[in-house]
């Protein structure tokens, strides 16, 4: 495999990096790959439930 050149720092991305919560990433890195995917699926399920509840509450009364 051809060695790719090192990633050059991008000033815009560097600016965004200041807002990244390192604590959460360090926590995630303690987990196995499977555990990380399970957490992602849980997050998706919670988001779907929120959308469902919000949709039900916003529906016009019959």
């Amino acid at each position: 495999m051809k060695e790719a050149p090192a990633l050059e720092p991008d000033p815009i991305i560097e600016a965004y990096k200041k807002d990244v919560d390192e604590t959460l990433l360090l926590e995630a890195l303690q987990l196995s790959h499977e555990h990380r995917l399970s957490k992602l699926m849980n997050l998706q399920a919670e988001a779907a439930e929120l959308r469902r509840v919000a949709g039900a509450n916003l529906a016009p009364p019959k």
Partner: peptide, 22 residues
């Protein structure tokens, strides 16, 4: 980075931070 989508900027920043941490 190559996709060049503004919506990816936060995601790229997080991935680069992960690379640094690793």
């Amino acid at each position: 980075r190559a996709a060049g989508r503004p919506k990816d900027l936060e995601a790229i920043a997080e991935l680069e931070k992960l690379l640094e941490l690793k």
